[in-house]
Amino acid sequence: MTGPVVILVGPMGVGKTTVGELLAERLGVGCRDTDHDIVEAAGKPISEIFLDDGEPHFRALELEAVRTALAEHTGVLALGGGAVLAPETRQLLAGAPVVFLDMDVAEAVKRVGLDAPRPLLMMNPRKQWRELMDARRPLYTEVARAVVSTENRTPDEVVGEILDVLELKQK
């Protein structure tokens, strides 16, 4: 199979980037984050893309970033929290080694905080996060080969479980 060895999906603040970097190090491969790709291509932060250009424009950039990364990258790939909203993205992920990193709202509040610059959490972050997860959890589950909780666990513990569930060998 070509493409990423592992693809991480899940909500904002779950640790996709942190876990992805550690997992890539353990596997001896590179790590790529589509949110970072979008920021690089647009030349501005995601929050500014949302405010200046709107969510539909951001989602179009996101779909293109995912498509490109899936075609080019062979290491660990972390997708933005909303990438699975696009049916095209879910189709592209079909059969791929996708891991859904999961957590509950209490953990999200600890990690993301209530004042973080997250455009989709500007008003009533706890309620917004719950609503996002109600809509997204079935989509994360749909594309995932495995679900790994990050709650009350270190990144090392999460990486260990990913290696086990996907039966990957460390370098």
Rank of each mutant, 00 (worst) to 15 (best):
A144T: 12
V112A: 09
M122K: 15
Q128M: 12
A135P: 09
D115A: 14
A146Q: 06
E142A: 15
R118P: 02
L132Y: 10
L132C: 14
M123A: 13
L139A: 02
T141P: 09
K110F: 07
M122G: 02
P119M: 05
M123D: 10
R130W: 08
D134A: 14
P119H: 04
M122L: 00
K110G: 13
Y140H: 02
V143T: 09
R145C: 09
M133E: 11
R126L: 08
A146Y: 00
E131H: 04
R118D: 00
Y140P: 08
A116V: 08
L120W: 05
R137G: 10
L120Q: 01
L121W: 06
Q128D: 05
V112N: 06
D115Y: 12
R137H: 15
T141I: 10
L114W: 01
P138W: 04
Q128L: 06
Q128E: 04
R126G: 04
L139D: 06
L114I: 11
L120F: 04
R126S: 11
A135Q: 14
K127T: 14
A146I: 05
P117N: 14
P125D: 01
G113E: 08
L139H: 14
L114M: 13
D134F: 04
K127N: 07
A146H: 08
A144R: 06
R111K: 04
P119G: 05
M123V: 15
K110P: 06
L120M: 12
M122Y: 06
A135L: 14
A146R: 15
P119Q: 00
M123K: 15
V112K: 08
L120C: 02
P117Q: 11
R130H: 13
K127F: 10
P138S: 00
Q128N: 12
A108Y: 10
L139C: 02
V109Q: 13
L132H: 11
M123C: 01
P125L: 00
M133L: 14
W129M: 14
L120S: 02
A108N: 06
P138M: 01
R136V: 05
V112C: 10
K127S: 12
P138T: 01
E131Q: 15
V147F: 03
M123N: 15
R111T: 01
K110V: 11
E142N: 13
E131Y: 00
M122D: 01
A108Q: 12
A116C: 07
M133A: 07
R136W: 01
D115M: 03
R118Y: 07
D134I: 02
V109F: 12
R126P: 08
L114E: 14
R126M: 06
D115C: 08
P117M: 05
Q128A: 15
K110H: 10
D115H: 14
G113H: 05
A135E: 11
P119W: 07
Q128I: 01
R145G: 06
T141R: 15
Y140Q: 09
E131C: 03
L121G: 00
A146V: 04
V112L: 13
N124W: 04
E142M: 14
L121N: 09
R137T: 10
